[in-house]
Amino acid sequence: MSYRSFLSLCTAAVAAALITGCAKAPQTELSSAKAALDSAKAAQADIYVAQVYLAASDSLKAANVEIEKQKSSGIFGINYDHAKALIASANALALDAKAKAAAEKAKVGAELDSLFTQSQAMLSETKDLLKRAPKGKEGKSALNAMESEVSTTEAAINDAKTLKASGDFIGARDKVNAGIAKLDSLKNELNTAIAKTAKPVGKKKK
């Protein structure tokens, strides 16, 4: 081998090393996937579709490890293909998580609206029962006490509305459902109290 050939070989080797060793890490794709994951979290994907969100998060972490692994592999043989595939997967999962979370949240939101309507109707009914209850001496204190329970329940339903406004749809759903259950028991109790108070009034008229 001539000296010229040796120099050519060395140049080719250095060029190859430069081409492969200095291959650029997929930083733009990584940033884009990270932004997609952040966006999914902002859409509460970690609450509504936790499994999909966590899969996206795991893929992104694995991509980070793969990139650093490739960077550490020396100046020869750096290959970001696997890292790029992981990033693409993370990105797709994050977008999917965001879309599914939005759909699920919209579903819970619609359910909440219906529950709020139901609770409002029950609240009006209960208040109406309180108004219609005979105001005799025997029932007055019981009715006063029940009034305070109705107010507490109304406050809980209003808290649920605040929770919904702040984006906590699941907490709001639990609270409004609890309020509805309480209103139901109050209505029953009120009807019983009305029945009790109504009895002697009837007797008196006789």
Partner: peptide, 14 residues
Amino acid sequence: ARVHFARAAIALAE
């Protein structure tokens, strides 16, 4: 007292 009762019942249901 009734307010406490109602609050506890609601928190339990939640």
